[in-house]
């Protein structure tokens, strides 16, 4: 039986609530007593041990619009400390400098024995080992499928379906915005500046575009992949990073003549690098527009490529799957006891 709290009610938080409402029958088939007992934002939280009304919660843009139950001025930590939840979904905004506020929320939850599901890269980039050890010590799940390549189930695939394989190399197009920009330059012959402007107009970039175009976002994802799947202990500073600002129309056109596209590729093997690369146009990694792709090379299965949508609302698919995994696994544990 899961009592769930959600930290963060931004774009993903709201989408998630709507998805829980839409898919409630499916979820209740797995856990008939599933309920959301709390949701917080940066200014306060809603809390009801009997479960919040998902229909009403789905219709509001701000938590304060839900009801007078909204506890303004109270902190997410306070909601966690009540200790009545057994799963926290952490979807606060990403901060790759110090991981906050998500990092503190995750630590507080894990210390209380609350399982954590997140799509927030920041805390995992800053403190991957610390968080995974804390989860292990407290016998908690810490699932983060939504942090890398949105809806692509890379961690689930490798951890569940390739348990005996050793991952030798991972290459990925992990940032949809830069892929959109480079695809526009490739197909339309537009300049970098114009393609970036278009991406901004379509709402594809972060407020600070350097997060995308200088490879910061892709580097964060590479750090998580390296630590989670290749047993490395790397930090953001260990990534050799070159963005796409200097990729010119001429470079793309010369590449095209030799049947290559230029893509921002993260490579994790002996090195960990994010840089513009020449990708043969018939290579499975050569996907266009905002698509993401991950190509893994293992000792037994050899090569596998996954392609999918990398950001935005599709991330909810990954978060929901992680939630269902926690429900099933905790149910199976209690059956064993």
């Amino acid at each position: 039986m899961l009592n769930v709290i959600i930290a963060g009610f931004g774009f993903i938080g709201r989408k998630l609530v709507r998805t829980f409402h839409k898919k409630i029958d499916l979820i209740k088939n797995v856990d008939s007593k599933f309920k959301i007992i709390g949701v917080s934002d940066s200014k306060g939280y809603l809390y009801n041990l009997n479960g919040l009304d998902l229909k009403r919660l789905s219709s509001v843009k701000r938590l304060s619009e839900y009801s007078e139950e909204y506890r303004e001025g109270r902190s997410t930590e306070e909601m966690i400390e009540k200790g009545e939840a057994n799963l926290m979904i952490e979807v606060t905004p990403t901060n790759v400098d110090d991981g906050e506020p998500g990092l503190s929320f995750m630590k507080a939850a894990l210390k209380k024995g609350i399982h954590v599901v997140t799509s927030n890269k920041g805390p995992l980039v800053v403190a991957f080992r610390e968080l995974t050890s804390l989860a292990k010590r407290n016998d908690c799940f810490l699932l983060y499928e939504g942090t890398v390549a949105g809806a692509i189930p890379i961690f689930s695939l490798i951890k569940r379906c390739l348990q005996g394989d050793t991952i030798r190399r991972i290459m990925g197009i992990l940032n949809g915005t830069t892929n959109y920009i480079l695809s526009r330059m490739y197909f339309e012959g537009t300049s970098f500046e114009l393609a970036l402007k278009e991406a901004r107009e379509r709402g594809l970039t972060e407020r600070d575009p350097s997060y995308d175009v200088d490879g910061i976002d892709a580097a964060c994802k590479a750090v998580i992949l390296a630590n989670a799947l290749m047993n490395r202990n790397v930090k953001f500073k260990d990534v050799k990073r070159t963005g796409i600002r200097r990729v010119t129309q001429e470079a793309i056109s010369l590449a095209k003549k030799s049947k290559f596209a230029i893509k921002l590729v993260s490579v994790i093997d002996k090195r960990i690098e994010v840089s513009p690369k020449l990708v043969p146009i018939n290579h499975p990694l050569c996907v266009h527009s905002t698509l993401n792709a991950i190509h893994i090379e293992t000792d037994l299965a050899r090569e596998i490529t996954l392609i999918g949508r990398g950001a935005g609302e599709e991330t909810v698919s990954a978060v929901l799957n992680d939630v269902l995994t926690v429900i099933r696994e905790t149910a199976s544990r209690s059956r064993k006891i």
Binding site: S191, R246, T248, Q249, E250, A251, S253, L254, A255, K257, S258
Partner: peptide, 16 residues
């Protein structure tokens, strides 16, 4: 090798 027509400030060279 091939050098592109410099539309941008930066020159561009393809080497094989």
């Amino acid at each position: 090798f091939e050098v592109s027509d410099p539309v941008s400030e930066d020159a561009c060279l393809k080497l094989e």
